[in-house]
Design a protein around this nucleic acid. Sequence first.
DNA 1: CATGGTCATCCTGTATACAGCTTGATTTTA
DNA 2: TAAAATCAAGCTGTATACAGGATGACCATG
Lengths: 240, 240
Amino acid sequence: MQINGECRVSRTAEETTPSPEDETGPARFDRIFGALRDRICLLAYPPGTVLSEVALAREFGISRTPIRRVFHKLEFMGLVQIRNGVGTIVTDIDLKTLKETYDLRKRLAELMGELSPVEITPDHLARIDDLIAETRALAPIRGDYDALARIINRLQGLLSDLTGNGPLREIIELLYYRVARIWFTFLPQLGWDDAIENQINELREIRTAMANNDIRSVGQYRSIDLQRMLTSLSRVLSEP
Amino acid sequence: MQINGECRVSRTAEETTPSPEDETGPARFDRIFGALRDRICLLAYPPGTVLSEVALAREFGISRTPIRRVFHKLEFMGLVQIRNGVGTIVTDIDLKTLKETYDLRKRLAELMGELSPVEITPDHLARIDDLIAETRALAPIRGDYDALARIINRLQGLLSDLTGNGPLREIIELLYYRVARIWFTFLPQLGWDDAIENQINELREIRTAMANNDIRSVGQYRSIDLQRMLTSLSRVLSEP
DNA sequence: CATGGTCATCCTGTATACAGCTTGATTTTA
DNA sequence: TAAAATCAAGCTGTATACAGGATGACCATG
Protein backbone atom coordinates (compact mmCIF):
# COMPACT_ATOMS: atom_id res chain seq x y z
CA MET A 1 0.00 0.00 0.00
CA GLN A 2 1.55 3.20 -1.12
CA ILE A 3 0.42 6.71 -1.66
CA ASN A 4 1.05 7.63 -5.24
CA GLY A 5 2.47 10.94 -4.13
CA GLU A 6 5.30 9.09 -2.43
CA CYS A 7 5.58 6.38 -5.04
CA ARG A 8 7.57 8.38 -7.55
CA VAL A 9 9.07 5.46 -9.34
CA SER A 10 11.74 6.38 -11.84
CA ARG A 11 9.36 6.61 -14.74
CA THR A 12 12.20 6.98 -17.18
CA ALA A 13 11.03 7.30 -20.72
CA GLU A 14 7.30 7.69 -20.26
CA GLU A 15 6.71 7.52 -23.96
CA THR A 16 3.78 9.86 -24.26
CA THR A 17 3.39 13.32 -25.67
CA PRO A 18 4.68 15.82 -23.14
CA SER A 19 1.40 17.66 -22.66
CA PRO A 20 1.14 19.97 -25.67
CA GLU A 21 -0.74 23.14 -24.87
CA ASP A 22 -3.03 23.01 -27.86
CA GLU A 23 -4.34 19.49 -27.47
CA THR A 24 -8.08 19.08 -27.74
CA GLY A 25 -10.35 17.58 -25.09
CA PRO A 26 -10.51 13.90 -26.08
CA ALA A 27 -6.77 13.92 -26.84
CA ARG A 28 -5.98 14.97 -23.30
CA PHE A 29 -8.24 12.27 -21.94
CA ASP A 30 -6.51 9.64 -24.06
CA ARG A 31 -3.08 10.88 -23.03
CA ILE A 32 -3.83 10.78 -19.31
CA PHE A 33 -5.69 7.50 -19.56
CA GLY A 34 -2.84 5.90 -21.49
CA ALA A 35 -0.29 7.25 -19.05
CA LEU A 36 -2.07 5.83 -16.01
CA ARG A 37 -2.84 2.55 -17.73
CA ASP A 38 0.81 2.13 -18.61
CA ARG A 39 1.97 3.06 -15.13
CA ILE A 40 -0.28 0.36 -13.72
CA CYS A 41 0.60 -2.15 -16.42
CA LEU A 42 4.34 -1.51 -16.17
CA LEU A 43 4.27 -1.64 -12.37
CA ALA A 44 5.12 1.99 -11.70
CA TYR A 45 1.94 1.66 -9.62
CA PRO A 46 2.11 -1.92 -8.31
CA PRO A 47 -1.05 -3.69 -7.10
CA GLY A 48 -2.26 -2.20 -3.84
CA THR A 49 -1.09 1.32 -4.68
CA VAL A 50 -3.57 3.96 -3.55
CA LEU A 51 -4.05 6.65 -6.17
CA SER A 52 -5.34 10.06 -5.14
CA GLU A 53 -7.50 12.17 -7.39
CA VAL A 54 -6.11 15.45 -6.08
CA ALA A 55 -2.48 14.33 -6.39
CA LEU A 56 -2.91 13.28 -10.02
CA ALA A 57 -5.00 16.34 -10.77
CA ARG A 58 -2.10 18.47 -9.56
CA GLU A 59 0.42 16.45 -11.58
CA PHE A 60 -1.52 16.90 -14.80
CA GLY A 61 -2.47 20.48 -14.00
CA ILE A 62 -6.24 19.92 -14.13
CA SER A 63 -9.10 19.47 -11.70
CA ARG A 64 -10.42 16.26 -10.18
CA THR A 65 -13.25 15.89 -12.68
CA PRO A 66 -11.30 14.63 -15.72
CA ILE A 67 -9.16 12.43 -13.48
CA ARG A 68 -12.31 10.83 -12.10
CA ARG A 69 -13.42 10.04 -15.63
CA VAL A 70 -10.11 8.30 -16.27
CA PHE A 71 -10.44 6.40 -12.98
CA HIS A 72 -13.89 5.19 -13.94
CA LYS A 73 -12.61 3.84 -17.24
CA LEU A 74 -9.76 2.11 -15.46
CA GLU A 75 -12.31 0.64 -13.05
CA PHE A 76 -14.43 -0.66 -15.94
CA MET A 77 -11.31 -2.31 -17.31
CA GLY A 78 -10.66 -3.92 -13.95
CA LEU A 79 -7.33 -2.20 -13.32
CA VAL A 80 -8.40 -0.25 -10.22
CA GLN A 81 -11.10 -0.38 -7.59
CA ILE A 82 -12.64 2.91 -6.43
CA ARG A 83 -13.62 2.82 -2.77
CA ASN A 84 -15.55 5.65 -1.19
CA GLY A 85 -13.67 7.33 1.61
CA VAL A 86 -10.53 5.33 0.94
CA GLY A 87 -9.12 5.96 -2.49
CA THR A 88 -8.61 4.36 -5.86
CA ILE A 89 -6.62 1.18 -5.42
CA VAL A 90 -4.69 -0.69 -8.09
CA THR A 91 -6.24 -4.16 -8.16
CA ASP A 92 -4.54 -7.46 -7.61
CA ILE A 93 -5.81 -10.70 -9.15
CA ASP A 94 -6.62 -13.87 -7.29
CA LEU A 95 -5.29 -17.14 -8.65
CA LYS A 96 -8.68 -18.43 -9.77
CA THR A 97 -9.49 -15.38 -11.86
CA LEU A 98 -5.96 -15.35 -13.24
CA LYS A 99 -6.31 -18.93 -14.43
CA GLU A 100 -9.75 -18.28 -15.90
CA THR A 101 -8.42 -15.25 -17.74
CA TYR A 102 -5.50 -17.14 -19.22
CA ASP A 103 -7.75 -20.05 -20.22
CA LEU A 104 -9.96 -17.59 -22.04
CA ARG A 105 -7.06 -15.70 -23.61
CA LYS A 106 -5.73 -18.97 -25.00
CA ARG A 107 -9.00 -19.65 -26.79
CA LEU A 108 -9.35 -16.08 -28.00
CA ALA A 109 -5.83 -16.22 -29.43
CA GLU A 110 -6.91 -19.19 -31.55
CA LEU A 111 -9.97 -17.28 -32.71
CA MET A 112 -7.71 -14.41 -33.79
CA GLY A 113 -6.65 -16.40 -36.82
CA GLU A 114 -10.07 -17.81 -37.61
CA LEU A 115 -12.34 -14.78 -37.55
CA SER A 116 -11.84 -12.40 -40.49
CA PRO A 117 -8.06 -12.76 -40.80
CA VAL A 118 -6.10 -9.82 -42.17
CA GLU A 119 -3.41 -9.70 -44.79
CA ILE A 120 0.11 -9.46 -43.39
CA THR A 121 2.06 -6.56 -44.84
CA PRO A 122 5.81 -5.87 -45.01
CA ASP A 123 5.18 -3.26 -42.34
CA HIS A 124 3.96 -5.92 -39.95
CA LEU A 125 7.05 -8.01 -40.65
CA ALA A 126 9.28 -5.01 -40.10
CA ARG A 127 7.67 -4.40 -36.75
CA ILE A 128 8.25 -7.89 -35.46
CA ASP A 129 11.80 -7.84 -36.81
CA ASP A 130 12.28 -4.68 -34.80
CA LEU A 131 10.99 -6.39 -31.70
CA ILE A 132 13.33 -9.34 -32.20
CA ALA A 133 16.29 -7.05 -32.77
CA GLU A 134 15.51 -4.94 -29.73
CA THR A 135 15.06 -7.98 -27.52
CA ARG A 136 18.43 -9.29 -28.66
CA ALA A 137 20.00 -5.90 -28.01
CA LEU A 138 18.44 -5.96 -24.58
CA ALA A 139 19.91 -9.33 -23.65
CA PRO A 140 23.32 -8.05 -22.48
CA ILE A 141 21.73 -5.29 -20.41
CA ARG A 142 20.80 -7.68 -17.66
CA GLY A 143 17.87 -6.81 -15.44
CA ASP A 144 16.03 -4.11 -17.41
CA TYR A 145 12.69 -5.81 -16.92
CA ASP A 146 10.88 -2.56 -17.61
CA ALA A 147 12.28 -2.37 -21.13
CA LEU A 148 11.37 -6.03 -21.67
CA ALA A 149 7.83 -5.34 -20.52
CA ARG A 150 7.54 -2.51 -23.03
CA ILE A 151 8.59 -4.87 -25.80
CA ILE A 152 5.94 -7.36 -24.68
CA ASN A 153 3.40 -4.53 -24.77
CA ARG A 154 4.39 -3.73 -28.33
CA LEU A 155 4.05 -7.37 -29.36
CA GLN A 156 0.49 -7.25 -28.06
CA GLY A 157 -0.08 -4.10 -30.11
CA LEU A 158 1.19 -5.87 -33.22
CA LEU A 159 -1.05 -8.87 -32.61
CA SER A 160 -3.98 -6.50 -32.15
CA ASP A 161 -3.32 -5.09 -35.58
CA LEU A 162 -3.41 -8.62 -36.97
CA THR A 163 -6.85 -9.27 -35.47
CA GLY A 164 -9.41 -8.48 -38.12
CA ASN A 165 -12.52 -8.99 -36.01
CA GLY A 166 -13.04 -5.68 -34.22
CA PRO A 167 -14.90 -6.85 -31.12
CA LEU A 168 -12.46 -9.73 -30.70
CA ARG A 169 -9.53 -7.34 -30.93
CA GLU A 170 -11.08 -5.11 -28.31
CA ILE A 171 -11.63 -7.99 -25.88
CA ILE A 172 -8.18 -9.49 -26.38
CA GLU A 173 -6.67 -6.12 -25.53
CA LEU A 174 -8.89 -5.70 -22.51
CA LEU A 175 -7.89 -9.07 -21.08
CA TYR A 176 -4.24 -8.42 -21.90
CA TYR A 177 -4.16 -5.22 -19.85
CA ARG A 178 -5.93 -6.96 -16.99
CA VAL A 179 -3.27 -9.56 -16.40
CA ALA A 180 -0.08 -8.34 -18.10
CA ARG A 181 1.26 -6.73 -14.93
CA ILE A 182 0.96 -10.05 -13.10
CA TRP A 183 3.26 -11.55 -15.69
CA PHE A 184 5.61 -8.58 -15.39
CA THR A 185 5.66 -9.00 -11.62
CA PHE A 186 6.68 -12.59 -12.13
CA LEU A 187 9.39 -12.00 -14.75
CA PRO A 188 12.25 -11.29 -12.29
CA GLN A 189 11.58 -14.60 -10.54
CA LEU A 190 11.97 -16.32 -13.88
CA GLY A 191 15.44 -14.88 -14.24
CA TRP A 192 16.80 -12.60 -16.94
CA ASP A 193 18.26 -15.20 -19.29
CA ASP A 194 15.17 -17.40 -19.31
CA ALA A 195 12.90 -14.39 -19.74
CA ILE A 196 14.87 -13.16 -22.72
CA GLU A 197 15.18 -16.61 -24.28
CA ASN A 198 11.46 -17.32 -23.93
CA GLN A 199 10.63 -13.96 -25.41
CA ILE A 200 12.91 -14.38 -28.40
CA ASN A 201 11.54 -17.86 -29.05
CA GLU A 202 7.98 -16.56 -28.95
CA LEU A 203 8.83 -13.70 -31.28
CA ARG A 204 10.60 -16.03 -33.72
CA GLU A 205 7.71 -18.50 -33.79
CA ILE A 206 5.26 -15.73 -34.51
CA ARG A 207 7.56 -14.20 -37.10
CA THR A 208 7.81 -17.50 -38.97
CA ALA A 209 4.03 -17.83 -39.11
CA MET A 210 3.72 -14.22 -40.23
CA ALA A 211 6.27 -14.72 -42.98
CA ASN A 212 4.02 -17.50 -44.33
CA ASN A 213 1.03 -15.16 -44.14
CA ASP A 214 -0.51 -17.76 -41.86
CA ILE A 215 -2.45 -15.90 -39.21
CA ARG A 216 -4.02 -19.09 -37.96
CA SER A 217 -0.60 -20.33 -36.93
CA VAL A 218 0.17 -16.97 -35.34
CA GLY A 219 -2.86 -17.46 -33.11
CA GLN A 220 -1.90 -21.05 -32.33
CA TYR A 221 1.62 -20.07 -31.35
CA ARG A 222 0.29 -17.28 -29.21
CA SER A 223 -2.08 -19.72 -27.55
CA ILE A 224 0.76 -22.08 -26.76
CA ASP A 225 2.82 -19.26 -25.33
CA LEU A 226 -0.05 -18.20 -23.10
CA GLN A 227 -0.32 -21.77 -21.83
CA ARG A 228 3.39 -21.72 -21.09
CA MET A 229 3.03 -18.45 -19.17
CA LEU A 230 0.12 -19.83 -17.16
CA THR A 231 2.12 -22.91 -16.26
CA SER A 232 5.04 -20.81 -15.08
CA LEU A 233 2.73 -18.55 -13.11
CA SER A 234 0.86 -21.40 -11.46
CA ARG A 235 4.07 -23.10 -10.39
CA VAL A 236 5.22 -20.01 -8.56
CA LEU A 237 1.95 -18.56 -7.28
CA SER A 238 0.51 -21.75 -5.82
CA GLU A 239 3.61 -22.77 -3.87
CA PRO A 240 5.25 -19.70 -2.41
CA MET B 1 -33.55 11.46 -33.49
CA GLN B 2 -35.60 12.19 -30.47
CA ILE B 3 -35.21 14.10 -27.27
CA ASN B 4 -35.65 11.75 -24.39
CA GLY B 5 -37.82 14.28 -22.65
CA GLU B 6 -40.40 13.86 -25.40
CA CYS B 7 -39.78 10.18 -25.91
CA ARG B 8 -41.87 9.00 -23.00
CA VAL B 9 -42.51 5.54 -24.33
CA SER B 10 -45.03 3.59 -22.34
CA ARG B 11 -42.45 1.96 -20.14
CA THR B 12 -45.02 -0.33 -18.65
CA ALA B 13 -43.57 -2.62 -16.03
CA GLU B 14 -40.11 -1.21 -15.66
CA GLU B 15 -39.10 -4.03 -13.39
CA THR B 16 -36.71 -2.22 -11.10
CA THR B 17 -36.91 -1.17 -7.51
CA PRO B 18 -39.05 1.96 -7.28
CA SER B 19 -36.36 4.20 -5.84
CA PRO B 20 -36.29 3.32 -2.14
CA GLU B 21 -35.27 6.25 -0.02
CA ASP B 22 -32.70 4.38 2.04
CA GLU B 23 -30.68 2.88 -0.79
CA THR B 24 -26.94 3.29 -0.52
CA GLY B 25 -24.70 4.93 -3.10
CA PRO B 26 -23.62 2.01 -5.29
CA ALA B 27 -27.15 0.58 -5.21
CA ARG B 28 -28.53 3.77 -6.71
CA PHE B 29 -25.88 3.71 -9.41
CA ASP B 30 -26.75 0.11 -10.28
CA ARG B 31 -30.46 0.89 -10.32
CA ILE B 32 -30.12 3.86 -12.66
CA PHE B 33 -27.57 2.12 -14.83
CA GLY B 34 -29.78 -0.96 -15.15
CA ALA B 35 -32.79 1.16 -15.93
CA LEU B 36 -31.09 3.06 -18.74
CA ARG B 37 -29.42 -0.07 -20.10
CA ASP B 38 -32.79 -1.81 -20.26
CA ARG B 39 -34.49 1.17 -21.85
CA ILE B 40 -31.85 1.14 -24.57
CA CYS B 41 -31.87 -2.63 -24.90
CA LEU B 42 -35.68 -2.89 -24.97
CA LEU B 43 -35.97 -0.02 -27.47
CA ALA B 44 -37.67 2.49 -25.20
CA TYR B 45 -34.72 4.58 -26.40
CA PRO B 46 -34.23 3.41 -30.00
CA PRO B 47 -30.90 3.98 -31.79
CA GLY B 48 -30.40 7.67 -32.56
CA THR B 49 -32.22 8.85 -29.45
CA VAL B 50 -30.52 11.85 -27.87
CA LEU B 51 -30.36 11.56 -24.08
CA SER B 52 -29.99 14.69 -21.99
CA GLU B 53 -28.12 14.70 -18.70
CA VAL B 54 -30.35 17.35 -17.16
CA ALA B 55 -33.58 15.63 -18.20
CA LEU B 56 -32.55 12.32 -16.71
CA ALA B 57 -31.12 14.02 -13.63
CA ARG B 58 -34.53 15.59 -13.08
CA GLU B 59 -36.32 12.28 -13.63
CA PHE B 60 -34.21 10.47 -11.04
CA GLY B 61 -34.15 13.45 -8.70
CA ILE B 62 -30.38 13.84 -8.63
CA SER B 63 -27.75 16.09 -10.20
CA ARG B 64 -25.93 15.62 -13.48
CA THR B 65 -22.84 14.13 -11.88
CA PRO B 66 -24.11 10.58 -11.16
CA ILE B 67 -25.93 10.51 -14.50
CA ARG B 68 -22.67 11.32 -16.24
CA ARG B 69 -21.04 8.36 -14.53
CA VAL B 70 -23.79 6.10 -15.82
CA PHE B 71 -23.39 7.56 -19.30
CA HIS B 72 -19.69 6.86 -19.24
CA LYS B 73 -20.29 3.23 -18.35
CA LEU B 74 -22.88 2.93 -21.11
CA GLU B 75 -20.36 4.48 -23.50
CA PHE B 76 -17.73 2.00 -22.41
CA MET B 77 -20.20 -0.80 -23.15
CA GLY B 78 -20.82 0.66 -26.58
CA LEU B 79 -24.50 1.46 -26.04
CA VAL B 80 -24.20 5.24 -26.36
CA GLN B 81 -21.83 7.79 -27.82
CA ILE B 82 -21.18 10.98 -25.85
CA ARG B 83 -20.61 13.98 -28.13
CA ASN B 84 -19.55 17.31 -26.72
CA GLY B 85 -22.05 20.05 -27.39
CA VAL B 86 -24.58 17.64 -28.86
CA GLY B 87 -25.71 15.06 -26.36
CA THR B 88 -25.47 11.40 -25.54
CA ILE B 89 -26.74 9.42 -28.47
CA VAL B 90 -27.93 5.80 -28.45
CA THR B 91 -25.65 4.02 -30.90
CA ASP B 92 -26.62 2.09 -33.97
CA ILE B 93 -24.54 -0.76 -35.36
CA ASP B 94 -23.25 -1.07 -38.89
CA LEU B 95 -23.67 -4.36 -40.69
CA LYS B 96 -19.99 -5.24 -40.60
CA THR B 97 -19.65 -4.83 -36.85
CA LEU B 98 -22.92 -6.66 -36.35
CA LYS B 99 -21.66 -9.65 -38.30
CA GLU B 100 -18.33 -9.62 -36.50
CA THR B 101 -20.09 -9.51 -33.15
CA TYR B 102 -22.34 -12.43 -33.98
CA ASP B 103 -19.40 -14.45 -35.33
CA LEU B 104 -17.62 -13.88 -32.05
CA ARG B 105 -20.69 -14.59 -29.93
CA LYS B 106 -21.10 -17.93 -31.71
CA ARG B 107 -17.58 -18.98 -30.75
CA LEU B 108 -17.92 -17.68 -27.20
CA ALA B 109 -21.15 -19.65 -26.78
CA GLU B 110 -19.21 -22.81 -27.59
CA LEU B 111 -16.55 -21.87 -25.07
CA MET B 112 -19.24 -21.49 -22.43
CA GLY B 113 -19.53 -25.24 -22.16
CA GLU B 114 -15.81 -25.93 -22.36
CA LEU B 115 -14.28 -23.54 -19.83
CA SER B 116 -15.00 -24.50 -16.20
CA PRO B 117 -18.56 -25.78 -16.69
CA VAL B 118 -20.95 -25.51 -13.77
CA GLU B 119 -23.32 -28.06 -12.32
CA ILE B 120 -26.93 -27.63 -13.41
CA THR B 121 -29.30 -27.44 -10.48
CA PRO B 122 -33.09 -27.98 -10.26
CA ASP B 123 -33.35 -24.22 -9.87
CA HIS B 124 -31.82 -23.72 -13.30
CA LEU B 125 -34.28 -26.20 -14.79
CA ALA B 126 -37.17 -24.48 -13.07
CA ARG B 127 -36.11 -21.18 -14.56
CA ILE B 128 -36.02 -22.43 -18.12
CA ASP B 129 -39.33 -24.21 -17.60
CA ASP B 130 -40.71 -20.86 -16.50
CA LEU B 131 -39.40 -19.24 -19.63
CA ILE B 132 -40.97 -21.92 -21.83
CA ALA B 133 -44.30 -21.63 -20.05
CA GLU B 134 -44.32 -17.85 -20.25
CA THR B 135 -43.45 -17.88 -23.92
CA ARG B 136 -46.31 -20.29 -24.59
CA ALA B 137 -48.65 -18.11 -22.55
CA LEU B 138 -47.48 -15.14 -24.60
CA ALA B 139 -48.26 -16.79 -27.94
CA PRO B 140 -51.98 -15.86 -28.06
CA ILE B 141 -51.24 -12.26 -27.08
CA ARG B 142 -50.11 -11.39 -30.54
CA GLY B 143 -47.71 -8.52 -30.95
CA ASP B 144 -46.31 -7.99 -27.47
CA TYR B 145 -42.74 -7.92 -28.71
CA ASP B 146 -41.63 -6.07 -25.60
CA ALA B 147 -42.66 -8.98 -23.37
CA LEU B 148 -40.91 -11.39 -25.73
CA ALA B 149 -37.75 -9.29 -25.54
CA ARG B 150 -37.85 -9.47 -21.76
CA ILE B 151 -38.03 -13.25 -21.93
CA ILE B 152 -35.05 -13.29 -24.27
CA ASN B 153 -33.20 -11.12 -21.76
CA ARG B 154 -33.96 -13.58 -19.01
CA LEU B 155 -32.69 -16.48 -21.11
CA GLN B 156 -29.42 -14.62 -21.46
CA GLY B 157 -29.35 -14.17 -17.69
CA LEU B 158 -29.85 -17.90 -17.22
CA LEU B 159 -27.08 -18.74 -19.67
CA SER B 160 -24.81 -16.31 -17.83
CA ASP B 161 -25.39 -18.24 -14.64
CA LEU B 162 -24.38 -21.40 -16.46
CA THR B 163 -21.06 -19.87 -17.53
CA GLY B 164 -18.49 -20.87 -14.98
CA ASN B 165 -15.58 -18.86 -16.37
CA GLY B 166 -15.99 -15.38 -14.90
CA PRO B 167 -14.26 -13.27 -17.55
CA LEU B 168 -16.03 -15.23 -20.29
CA ARG B 169 -19.39 -14.63 -18.63
CA GLU B 170 -18.64 -10.94 -18.41
CA ILE B 171 -17.73 -10.68 -22.08
CA ILE B 172 -20.69 -12.73 -23.29
CA GLU B 173 -23.01 -10.40 -21.40
CA LEU B 174 -21.26 -7.33 -22.77
CA LEU B 175 -21.65 -8.49 -26.36
CA TYR B 176 -25.24 -9.53 -25.74
CA TYR B 177 -26.23 -6.06 -24.60
CA ARG B 178 -24.43 -4.51 -27.54
CA VAL B 179 -26.49 -6.22 -30.20
CA ALA B 180 -29.66 -7.49 -28.52
CA ARG B 181 -31.66 -4.39 -29.43
CA ILE B 182 -30.84 -4.90 -33.10
CA TRP B 183 -32.46 -8.30 -32.88
CA PHE B 184 -35.44 -6.80 -31.06
CA THR B 185 -35.77 -4.17 -33.76
CA PHE B 186 -35.90 -6.96 -36.30
CA LEU B 187 -38.40 -9.21 -34.49
CA PRO B 188 -41.59 -7.52 -35.80
CA GLN B 189 -40.37 -8.02 -39.36
CA LEU B 190 -40.01 -11.71 -38.62
CA GLY B 191 -43.67 -11.90 -37.65
CA TRP B 192 -45.21 -12.90 -34.34
CA ASP B 193 -45.79 -16.60 -35.00
CA ASP B 194 -42.32 -17.24 -36.36
CA ALA B 195 -40.74 -15.28 -33.54
CA ILE B 196 -42.62 -17.26 -30.91
CA GLU B 197 -41.98 -20.58 -32.60
CA ASN B 198 -38.25 -19.93 -32.97
CA GLN B 199 -38.03 -18.88 -29.38
CA ILE B 200 -39.83 -21.92 -28.05
CA ASN B 201 -37.67 -24.20 -30.15
CA GLU B 202 -34.51 -22.57 -28.85
CA LEU B 203 -35.72 -22.83 -25.27
CA ARG B 204 -36.66 -26.49 -25.68
CA GLU B 205 -33.30 -27.39 -27.24
CA ILE B 206 -31.47 -25.74 -24.40
CA ARG B 207 -33.75 -27.31 -21.84
CA THR B 208 -33.06 -30.78 -23.21
CA ALA B 209 -29.31 -30.23 -22.97
CA MET B 210 -29.69 -28.86 -19.46
CA ALA B 211 -31.76 -31.85 -18.37
CA ASN B 212 -28.82 -34.05 -19.41
CA ASN B 213 -26.47 -31.82 -17.39
CA ASP B 214 -24.64 -31.30 -20.69
CA ILE B 215 -23.46 -27.72 -20.72
CA ARG B 216 -21.36 -28.31 -23.78
CA SER B 217 -24.50 -29.02 -25.77
CA VAL B 218 -26.15 -25.97 -24.28
CA GLY B 219 -23.36 -23.89 -25.74
CA GLN B 220 -23.57 -25.66 -29.07
CA TYR B 221 -27.30 -25.09 -29.35
CA ARG B 222 -26.86 -21.48 -28.41
CA SER B 223 -24.18 -21.14 -31.07
CA ILE B 224 -26.50 -22.61 -33.67
CA ASP B 225 -29.29 -20.25 -32.65
CA LEU B 226 -26.97 -17.27 -32.94
CA GLN B 227 -26.06 -18.38 -36.44
CA ARG B 228 -29.73 -18.60 -37.29
CA MET B 229 -30.30 -15.09 -35.95
CA LEU B 230 -27.40 -13.73 -37.97
CA THR B 231 -28.74 -15.33 -41.12
CA SER B 232 -32.18 -13.80 -40.57
CA LEU B 233 -30.66 -10.43 -39.83
CA SER B 234 -28.37 -10.46 -42.85
CA ARG B 235 -31.22 -11.36 -45.18
CA VAL B 236 -33.22 -8.34 -44.08
CA LEU B 237 -30.52 -5.77 -43.44
CA SER B 238 -28.62 -6.23 -46.67
CA GLU B 239 -31.64 -6.04 -48.99
CA PRO B 240 -34.05 -3.42 -47.71
C1' DC C 1 -33.76 34.23 -54.62
C1' DA C 2 -29.61 32.24 -53.01
C1' DT C 3 -25.90 32.44 -49.74
C1' DG C 4 -23.03 33.49 -46.21
C1' DG C 5 -22.43 35.24 -41.55
C1' DT C 6 -24.19 35.96 -36.93
C1' DC C 7 -26.07 34.59 -32.87
C1' DA C 8 -29.23 32.42 -29.60
C1' DT C 9 -29.75 28.11 -27.42
C1' DC C 10 -29.13 23.89 -26.54
C1' DC C 11 -25.66 20.48 -25.13
C1' DT C 12 -21.37 18.44 -22.62
C1' DG C 13 -16.69 19.59 -20.22
C1' DT C 14 -14.45 21.59 -16.25
C1' DA C 15 -13.61 23.52 -11.80
C1' DT C 16 -14.89 23.81 -7.12
C1' DA C 17 -17.40 23.93 -2.73
C1' DC C 18 -19.44 20.96 0.34
C1' DA C 19 -21.35 16.53 2.19
C1' DG C 20 -20.55 11.83 3.55
C1' DC C 21 -17.62 7.91 4.33
C1' DT C 22 -13.41 5.37 6.16
C1' DT C 23 -9.69 4.80 9.01
C1' DG C 24 -6.43 5.15 12.45
C1' DA C 25 -4.70 7.85 16.25
C1' DT C 26 -6.10 9.69 20.53
C1' DT C 27 -8.57 9.97 24.58
C1' DT C 28 -11.72 8.37 27.92
C1' DT C 29 -13.54 4.87 30.86
C1' DA C 30 -14.25 0.30 33.08
C1' DT D 1 -4.04 -2.10 31.58
C1' DA D 2 -7.48 -2.98 28.14
C1' DA D 3 -11.18 -1.73 25.66
C1' DA D 4 -14.44 1.30 23.98
C1' DA D 5 -15.64 5.87 22.40
C1' DT D 6 -14.19 10.04 20.04
C1' DC D 7 -12.39 12.70 16.67
C1' DA D 8 -9.40 14.50 13.12
C1' DA D 9 -7.65 13.99 8.55
C1' DG D 10 -7.80 12.00 4.46
C1' DC D 11 -10.50 10.28 0.75
C1' DT D 12 -14.46 9.88 -2.79
C1' DG D 13 -19.52 11.33 -3.89
C1' DT D 14 -22.58 15.07 -5.10
C1' DA D 15 -24.31 19.44 -6.53
C1' DT D 16 -23.65 23.51 -9.09
C1' DA D 17 -21.73 27.54 -11.49
C1' DC D 18 -19.39 28.60 -15.44
C1' DA D 19 -16.73 27.76 -19.82
C1' DG D 20 -16.65 25.88 -24.39
C1' DG D 21 -18.48 23.43 -28.39
C1' DA D 22 -22.28 22.27 -31.89
C1' DT D 23 -26.25 23.43 -34.36
C1' DG D 24 -30.02 25.54 -36.50
C1' DA D 25 -32.68 29.76 -37.04
C1' DC D 26 -32.39 34.21 -38.55
C1' DC D 27 -30.94 38.01 -41.09
C1' DA D 28 -27.98 40.76 -44.02
C1' DT D 29 -25.92 40.87 -48.48
C1' DG D 30 -24.58 39.48 -53.25
